[in-house]
Design a protein around this nucleic acid. Structure first.
Lengths: 230, 230
DNA sequence: GGTGCTATCGTACTTAGTACGACCTGGCTG
DNA sequence: CAGCCAGGTCGTACTAAGTACGATAGCACC
């Protein structure tokens, strides 16, 4: 009766973590609890603690799984293209795991996939010829944009296309008259067929990469008051 | 005994919300509870519910307070400068409220300060001559960067300057040998005196605004397959 | 002085994370 | 083969948090 029951191969750390990711995808991070995870895994809550130390550790592991799913920048193309590939992949993955963006930046104690990922991105930029300084700026900007965008996209009602009607409706009810530009923006643009918030991602990504290329060429990122590294 | 006690002017919705912001600033959003807020306000927990419907509503109100603190883009300078002012202010404010970034994008039901803020930013861009389409892209990119950056900055150990030693120490212990570029990046750049993650903010902001100016001039943002609005 | 309103609170229910230690079983040892 | 050990599973229970429900106390006004 306490045995593995034949229907259920014995639990494991990875099974807990992959189950956790699947459950969070399904019901959202707000409703994600140890008890529900246990039910999804068909065990009792305390069984989980045999494989992970705490819920925090589960979140750590979940984030590492997400990182492991993001494509690394390929190393057989120029860095601009490689970064583009990595960023588009990241955005896809983050859309599949809308709970992840707020967590990814806040975890200390990064897992192996996380470290590997960051190492690959840094390597891509450095091998592309960017100075350490510019690499730092580039990575900060790119990931700020990436996580910020994913965060916005994750919290868009419906999914980013036309279904903003709900929020727009709220705003109209509250009196869009006080907010003329907001009124114009929603009625003349957002609610128009064909609008898709996600379109701004590629636009922004290209804009940023373009700016970085420009900076790499000009070297204008090296501030006069610091030692230039490399 | 049930009276206002003379030491404490009667509670109010704003007092609850400003107290909540102050408390979250002090102890962080993780430890922010109704019970602790009640203690900070010197009342019993259930008293709070006389002024707000739920904890979620408190969070809504807190976010609106944060928005109200961010400077609106001034309307007597060109849009680039105005946006720069607004973004720098936002970053300052978000540093003072590190708990805010993850919340700001996730609240539905925006408050008046939030609406006013968005209206002002949209107005700044539109009066600057940007098309609706480019305005949408610009706002998405700018705020993605802003929130993403604030999110990263909020979760940096110490505060972004040299105190990354802790995390770096962890990584070294785990074997930085497997992550050569990460090793180089931390030892040769991050741990060097003078490094400040925050420096990337101005760099990124300038890069983005510069790119937007370029796009505004060329009109390259109008996709061939959509109707051009305005 | 009664009547009712408003701000405050006491109590208690529900859900969550998780500490502690019991139990059961399979495999190894003697 | 009997007994023992270790690992996996779980029952129970404690703490903390959000909050529903209804009580209470002071005050305004009739």
């Amino acid at each position: 009766m306490m045995t593995t029951d034949l229907h259920r191969p014995t639990l494991s750390r990875v099974r807990v973590l992959t189950g956790a990711v699947a459950l969070a995808d399904e019901i959202g991070i707000e409703d994600f609890t140890i008890r529900r995870l246990a039910a999804a895994l068909d065990v009792k809550p305390m069984t989980i603690y045999h494989y992970v130390a705490s819920k925090e550790r589960i979140l750590d592991g979940m984030v590492d799984i997400v990182f492991s799913e993001i494509a690394l920048p390929p190393d057989d193309v120029e860095w601009q293209s490689a970064i583009r590939v990595r960023c588009r992949s990241a955005r896809d993955i983050l859309r599949r795991h809308p709970w992840a963006p707020p967590l990814m930046e806040s975890r200390l104690d990064p897992g192996p996939a996380t470290l590997r990922h960051h190492d690959a991105v840094l390597g891509c930029l450095r091998r592309g010829g960017l100075s350490l300084q510019l690499t730092a700026h580039a990575y900060a900007i790119i990931d700020s944009f990436l996580y910020g965008f994913a965060l916005e996209e994750a919290n868009l009602p419906g999914g980013g296309s036309g279904e903003i009607v709900e929020v727009a409706g709220d705003m109209i009810r509250e009196g869009l008259a006080d907010y003329p530009y907001l009124a114009e923006f929603t009625t003349e643009h957002v609610l128009r067929p064909g609008y898709d918030f996600g379109d701004s991602f590629d636009f922004g990504l290209d804009l940023i990469i373009d700016g970085l290329v420009r900076a790499a060429v000009s070297g204008s990122h090296d501030r006069h008051d610091q030692i230039v590294d490399r």
